[in-house]
Design a protein around this nucleic acid. Structure first.
Lengths: 215, 215
DNA sequence: TAGATTGTTAATCGATTAACAATC
DNA sequence: TAGATTGTTAATCGATTAACAATC
């Protein structure tokens, strides 16, 4: 299968295009030019055209882009036209918060299981799913079709569970634990390191303070 | 105040260095060379040295870097040596999850208030703080020193509250709402767009499937 | 047809990697 | 001193922006 390599930077921007196009649809905007869109998004028209042309020609000279069409096409590129069964490992605050994210379901991300180590939580329903014990995970994975595992466990538990997930054929992990998972090349890991995001904010705040010494 | 411009890419990497150095300290490692560290972190020694030298010379020829010293210095650069009072706007699942993140407190991020619109939540304690009504926010901001506001409200409410935050002098917003806030230049916004992260994962999964057509 | 705007090539800019002299 | 490894300059690579011919 041929693969024109598309840069990570481009891919990170796709969901944002998707979001803006969705909003345009809500506002009943039918067509938009790269120039208009670039102004809305605070980017350049050139970048938008370059980005999109990685995936094909979605526009029309003299017209621009049809909002609905482009939205649908980007959706397909992002894989939002198929259902993705997911499980959550870690039914703490964060796990439960993610379980209750209505938006995900809308985009084809379907929660099919939620697990924890804490026996106190066993059987408690979250979004219609009873929390199961992590010990049942390997069995569950064999019996059910699961695509994405969401890891909201503490560090050491997360490391251990990642191995079990890989052994049982999981190919995509959304990792919220504060460590870099060591997984085979064919396993896709997307990290959300919240504390690192907060530190970036803190850096920018400190820098700003230094530049505008306010004392 | 002079400002040697440091690229965003470098800054995004700092918290990761900080994390690895912290782990090295836990393992009682006293010194490390850029080469050793690069192997652990799956990056290049050159990049590590370049990154660090944006902020000063923290190493020593023939020796490498003192782990504890470098850890402390990066901590200072990230502003982790001072206390940052924070408030959470939105006491839903995500807001409560963030409130309970113990790690933040450890790094100087101190939660001083938590707010919501829902009257049902009023007075309920989260991590020792009683949930207050958002209507009390302007008063609270005038009476208390708050640095960072964490926005975990739904889209439209978030937009409205961002304006109130700005009006009351908040200079840093950690935004979890699914929109790009329009704020003045002197207000720092760090976005965490969870659904966009998940879409990136979905894209990579779909791409992988296409490349290894398994049917 | 004329005007608008894309798709795409070329130019520029920035970030990463390589190399090496300085120095502990 | 010799060996190791930094700090820093130079070379390469990749991503963004500009320009423009193609075309709706």
């Amino acid at each position: 299968m041929e693969t024109k390599q598309i840069s990570k930077a481009v891919i990170k921007r796709l969901p944002r295009y998707y979001r803006y196009l969705g909003e345009l649809m809500e506002d009943n905007v039918e067509r938009i030019s790269s120039n208009e869109l670039s102004k809305k998004m605070h980017t350049t028209a050139s970048q938008i055209r370059q980005d999109l042309n990685n995936f094909g020609g979605f526009g029309q000279q003299g017209y621009g882009y049809n909002v609905h069409y482009l939205y649908t096409e980007i959706g397909k590129i992002l894989g939002l036209d198929t259902v993705h069964p997911m499980i959550i490992l870690g039914a703490g605050n964060l796990g439960q918060a993610l379980a209750n994210y209505v938006d995900f379901e809308k985009r084809g991300f379907r929660l099919v299981g939620i697990f924890d180590v804490n026996p106190v939580l066993e059987g408690i329903a979250v979004r219609g799913l009873e929390i199961q014990m992590l010990s049942e995970l390997p069995f569950f994975l064999r019996e059910n079709n699961v695509e994405i595992a969401i890891l909201t466990l503490p560090k050491n538990k997360a490391k251990e569970m990642a191995d079990i997930l890989v052994e049982n054929g999981i190919k995509a992990i959304w990792n919220f634990a504060h460590l870099d998972l060591e997984t085979p090349d064919d396993v896709i890991v997307e990290n959300v390191h919240l504390s690192e995001s907060l530190m970036t904010l803190s850096y920018n705040l400190s820098k700003y303070r230094q530049e505008h010494v306010d004392k």
